[in-house]
Amino acid sequence: MNVKFINPFLEGTISVLKTMAFVEPRAGKPYLKMDSLAKGDISGIIGLTGSATGSLAVSFSEAAILKIVSNMLGENIKSMDGNIKDAVGEITNMISGVARKNLEADGFYIQAAIPTVVSGKNHSIAHVMGGPSLIIPFEIDDGSFVVDVCLAEENSKKK
């Protein structure tokens, strides 16, 4: 996977969570994930097609997403209810939107599908293109989450 895909998703994630949830995520060192096991308790997944094809998943630990959604709604959310599921889908959609706009600057024109949300301990993420995927880990004061991207350029796919 092309390393130039890292920054658009990293910047998109920080921008969305800073703007909508008033948290400052700290990014860790990206690495490759070889299996399909999610790194969090709840994940939003969205398919991407166009000049690069694949999928984006955002997986949150319970502590991290409870804090993020509480901030977004302006109320203290204590359990993983329907609000959380909707918010994870919406956050995934927004991160994809900002990242795709950033990717346009590098000449990639990518469309997104409707996000789906999967939850539960040790759930798995089925990326459209199979593995491995690129993980960008993030921390906020209350917990961790990861951006999990598996994207292949159209040209490299045809080789």
């Binding site: 959604v69 977004m72 709604l73 302006g74 329907g82 609000n83 909707d86 918010a87 889908g89 919406e90």
Partner: peptide, 10 residues
């Protein structure tokens, strides 16, 4: 999405 309505209301 009820959550997004709440976010905008907030």
């Amino acid at each position: 999405f009820a959550t997004m309505r709440k976010v905008i209301r907030n």
